[in-house]
Amino acid sequence: KLPPGWEKRMFANGTVYYFNHITNASQFERPSG
């Protein structure tokens, strides 16, 4: 399970990334916590 605010998303080319809808942060590494 991801930390609060984070969700797993995917680009059109299939690349997975993680987006935080609270802070609008995005990253390729899975957030810890």
Score class of each variant (00 low, 15 high):
17 Y>W: 08
21 H>L: 15
12 A>N: 09
1 K>W: 13
19 F>M: 03
31 P>E: 01
26 S>K: 11
25 A>S: 11
6 W>P: 00
1 K>D: 15
14 G>T: 02
29 E>P: 06
28 F>Q: 08
6 W>R: 00
31 P>T: 01
6 W>K: 00
33 G>W: 15
23 T>H: 04
22 I>P: 02
9 R>H: 06
13 N>Y: 03
21 H>V: 15
24 N>Y: 08
17 Y>Q: 03
29 E>L: 08
32 S>K: 11
31 P>V: 02
30 R>I: 13
9 R>N: 02
10 M>S: 10
20 N>R: 01
18 Y>V: 00
9 R>M: 10
15 T>N: 08
10 M>L: 11
20 N>I: 02
22 I>Q: 09
3 P>Y: 04
19 F>S: 01
22 I>L: 12
13 N>G: 07
27 Q>H: 05
30 R>G: 03
28 F>H: 07
5 G>P: 11
29 E>N: 09
24 N>I: 04
20 N>V: 01
5 G>R: 02
6 W>Y: 01
27 Q>I: 07
30 R>L: 11
26 S>G: 07
12 A>P: 15
21 H>R: 13
19 F>A: 02
22 I>A: 08
21 H>D: 05
6 W>H: 00
15 T>P: 03
15 T>K: 12
8 K>I: 15
10 M>I: 12
19 F>Y: 14
15 T>E: 12
31 P>R: 01
7 E>Q: 08
21 H>T: 15
5 G>E: 08
22 I>R: 08
24 N>M: 13
1 K>G: 14
1 K>H: 13
23 T>K: 04
11 F>R: 10
25 A>F: 09
22 I>Y: 12
15 T>I: 12
31 P>D: 01
22 I>T: 09
17 Y>D: 03
15 T>H: 07
27 Q>G: 02
8 K>Q: 14
12 A>E: 12
2 L>H: 01
16 V>Y: 11
32 S>N: 13
33 G>R: 10
12 A>D: 11
15 T>W: 07
14 G>H: 02
15 T>S: 09
16 V>A: 07
11 F>P: 02
11 F>Y: 14
22 I>W: 10
23 T>D: 05
14 G>Y: 02
30 R>E: 10
21 H>Y: 15
16 V>E: 10
30 R>Q: 09
9 R>L: 09
12 A>K: 11
29 E>F: 08
5 G>D: 06
5 G>M: 06
23 T>A: 05
26 S>W: 15
17 Y>T: 02
8 K>F: 09
28 F>I: 11
15 T>D: 11
18 Y>P: 00
21 H>S: 14
3 P>K: 04
12 A>G: 09
16 V>N: 03
25 A>M: 14
2 L>K: 06
30 R>D: 11
21 H>M: 12
21 H>Q: 11
19 F>L: 05
5 G>L: 04
9 R>K: 09
21 H>A: 12
9 R>I: 07
25 A>L: 13
11 F>W: 11
29 E>Q: 10
30 R>M: 11
31 P>K: 01
22 I>F: 13
23 T>P: 00
27 Q>M: 07
13 N>I: 02
20 N>G: 00
15 T>A: 10
7 E>P: 00
31 P>M: 01
25 A>E: 15
26 S>A: 12
3 P>M: 05
26 S>F: 15
30 R>N: 10
2 L>S: 02
22 I>V: 11
31 P>W: 02
